[in-house]
Amino acid sequence: MSCSDRLLITRFAPHAQHLADALGKVGCFTIAQPLLTVVGLNESDTLDDFLSGQYDYVIAVSGNAVKYAQRSIHHNWPKAQYFAVGESTKASLTIATKQPVESPVSRFDSEGLLALDAFQDVDHKRVLILRGEGGRDLLENTLIKRGAEVDFFQTYKRVKLDLDGTYLVNYWQQASINGVIISSVEILNQLFVLVPKGYTSWLCGLTFYVPSQRVAEQAKLLGVENIILLPSLHTNQIVDFFHNN
C-alpha cells in the first residue's frame, strides 16, 4: 500500500494527528501541523433560550461548534429538528443530541444546507445556528429573507498559533510536501498569512484538497491552481479517497 502524495495536514488538533496516523497506515507521507486552535466561549443568555426549547431548527456548522456546545449543556439537548453542514459534524451532533440529524447529500457547505427541503419554507420558524465567533453570514441572511427568525450560539473562537512561517515552509520543502489538506476558509487564509511572501508561488503550486466549493473558490482567489474536492472531512472517507486514487 502506498500513495504518491506527501501531505501537509492543517486541521485543528487533535484531528490533524489522527488523520496523519490513519493516512500513514495506507502509505501516505504526512506532516500534521495545526495552524489555529480554539477556545470555548460562554454565551449564557443564548444557552438559556436554547435549553428552554425555544428553537424549531438547530444548525451546527462544525464539529467544534458541537463539541463546545456540549461542554455547556449538562443535561439532554432540547427537542428540535437538528441539521449539520457536513457528514463529520452530523456524526458528532447525532451522538450529542441522541436525535435524528439531517445534512446535505453532496455539497457540504451553507449552500448545500440551504438547498434542503426543510429550509424552503421557514416562515415564522425560530432557527439557532451553532458556530464559532465571526462565522459566515450566508445562512442567517438567507433564512431571514425566507421568513425565519435567526439567532447564533457562538460556542468558541479561533486563535492563531504562534508559529515560525519561514522555518515551517523550509521544513515542508525539505520533506517534499506536494499537497495540503484544508478543512476551512479560516485555516486556508491563515496558511497564506503564515507562509512568507517569497514562498507564495511554491505554496500555490501544491495540490489543495478541500471539503467544499466555498473553500475551493477562496483558494482560487489566492492563486492556487490545482484544487481537488474531498468526499467529506470524515477521516475514514479521506483515507479511502487517497488509498483508492
Rank of each mutant, 00 (worst) to 15 (best):
R6S: 07
L7D: 00
L8I: 03
L8M: 08
T10S: 02
T10N: 04
T10Q: 03
T10L: 08
R11H: 05
H15N: 15
A16H: 00
A20I: 06
D21P: 01
A22E: 05
L23K: 01
K25T: 15
G27Y: 03
F29V: 13
T30P: 05
L35T: 02
V39F: 14
G40Q: 15
G40D: 04
L41Q: 01
L41P: 01
N42M: 13
N42R: 07
E43V: 09
E43Q: 12
D45Q: 12
T46Y: 14
L47V: 07
D48V: 13
F50L: 03
L51V: 11
Y55K: 06
D56T: 08
D56F: 09
A60P: 11
N64V: 04
V66F: 02
V66M: 04
Q70E: 11
F83W: 01
A84G: 03
G86L: 00
K90T: 10
S92R: 05
I95Y: 07
Q99H: 12
V101L: 03
E102T: 09
S106H: 09
F108N: 07
F108P: 02
F108M: 12
A115L: 05
A115C: 14
L116W: 06
L116M: 05
D117F: 13
F119S: 03
D121T: 12
D121P: 14
V122M: 09
I129G: 00
I129E: 00
L130T: 00
G135K: 02
L138V: 06
L139F: 06
T142V: 12
I144A: 11
G147P: 06
A148I: 10
A148L: 13
A148R: 02
V150S: 01
F153H: 06
Y156P: 00
K157A: 04
L161T: 03
D162K: 11
L163D: 05
G165D: 08
T166Q: 14
V169I: 07
W172H: 05
Q174K: 15
A175M: 10
A175H: 15
S176R: 10
I177R: 01
G179C: 05
S184P: 05
V185K: 06
E186V: 08
E186P: 12
I187N: 04
L188T: 04
V193Q: 14
V195D: 03
V195L: 13
Y199E: 13
S201F: 09
L203N: 01
G205I: 07
T207K: 04
Y209V: 01
Q213W: 09
R214M: 05
R214V: 02
V215G: 02
L221N: 14
L221T: 10
L221I: 07
G223E: 06
V224H: 07
N226Y: 10
I227Y: 03
I228V: 10
S232E: 03
I238H: 00
F241M: 05
